[in-house]
């Protein structure tokens, strides 16, 4: 029973519960629908999705949150999960297809109709503009790195740790920006649709965010004075010296944070190889020529038969 207590939220947040619960319900419904339609998703993709969601929930709504408030290195670990690991796992699982299936048909058809009836159709344009801005290959990495730096500026960090509202804002901004950024990096161009970002651009972004995280992580772990006295002032949750706490926190920002870029590079390379393979199998000129010639041409039908 004592261990179960550690799973309870330190500071209960209805928002986290509703967002995570709703996401899980949509995903589960999508899984069931896909299976019923004869296209089951297998084990790994849902597993990776739930792992990402569960980790994000756990660092926000268990005893871990208490530790993150009173130990700097646990705080860094929390941000690593919210800004990197959780979103990376969620985006890697390719959740959009499943979540879309999970939305009840009535809502999927009804929502656009309702927008039209309420004459709110014009909202689409600014929303698309906001999305394009957030996914801009210059703005997205600046936002990603900027947020990491912002919350680690000592006076700002101080206020985030004494003000519950700022603390929540910090955590939500990490998770939201993590999802946005890793979506830009890790989702295939096919998934991204009309706002797709080229793979080579992504390969340029990744070393940049890696370097900037190395700089701040190294700074935090190597400076010989205390940057974040708030943890000493409010009482540390473990018997650990302030400098060691700061050094471990810096290392967590430095190494795993920067390593995540390597994961990003590997995923992008895999996308590139896959697209290249698909292009070799379906040369564009043939694909374009196929509908013109009658379906009986052996060359045109052969590759598709291979794939099937």
């Amino acid at each position: 029973m004592r261990y179960l207590w550690y799973l309870l939220p330190w500071q209960f947040s209805p928002t986290v519960l509703i967002v995570c619960g709703l996401t899980m319900a949509l995903y589960l419904r999508g899984l069931v629908t896909l299976k019923r339609n004869g296209a089951p998703l297998g084990f790994w993709r849902p597993f990776v999705f739930f792992l990402g969601l569960a980790l994000s929930y756990a660092v926000l709504q268990t005893y871990f949150d208490f530790l993150a408030q009173h130990l700097f290195w646990v705080h860094c670990l929390q941000q690593l999960v919210l800004h990197h690991l959780g979103p990376v796992l969620i985006v890697l699982s390719g959740p959009v297809l499943v979540l879309r299936e999970g939305v009840p048909r009535a809502l999927r058809v009804g929502a656009p109709r309702l927008l039209r009836q309420m004459r709110l159709d014009w909202l689409r344009k600014p929303l698309r503009l906001i999305w394009r801005t957030l996914q801009h290959p210059l703005i997205a990495p600046a936002l990603f790195v900027g947020l990491i730096y912002l919350w680690l500026i000592p006076p700002i960090h101080f206020t985030a740790m004494i003000d519950t509202r700022r603390y929540l804002l910090m955590n939500w901004s990490s998770l939201a920006d993590g999802l946005l950024f890793w979506w830009l990096i890790l989702a295939s161009r096919e998934e991204q649709g009309s706002a797709a970002v080229g793979y080579k651009t992504r390969l340029l972004i990744l070393p940049f965010i890696s370097m900037t995280q190395i700089v701040i992580g190294a700074y935090i772990s190597l400076v010989p004075w205390q940057l974040y006295p708030i943890y000493a002032l409010c009482g540390r949750a473990l018997a650990i010296s302030p400098m060691l706490d700061q050094q471990i926190g810096g290392l967590l920002t430095w190494i795993p944070g920067a390593m995540m870029s390597l994961v990003g590079v590997l995923v992008v390379l895999r996308h590139m190889v896959r697209e290249e393979e698909a292009r070799l199998r379906f040369p564009p000129e043939r694909a374009a020529a196929a509908p013109e010639s009658s379906s009986g041409t052996p060359e045109a039908s052969q590759p598709s038969a291979e794939v099937a």
Binding site: W10, Q69, M161, T164, C234, G235, A237, A239
Partner: peptide, 11 residues
């Protein structure tokens, strides 16, 4: 202690 975001623990 939740409200004032402080902590205590017995050694």
């Amino acid at each position: 202690i939740k409200r004032y975001r402080v902590s205590y623990r017995d050694e």
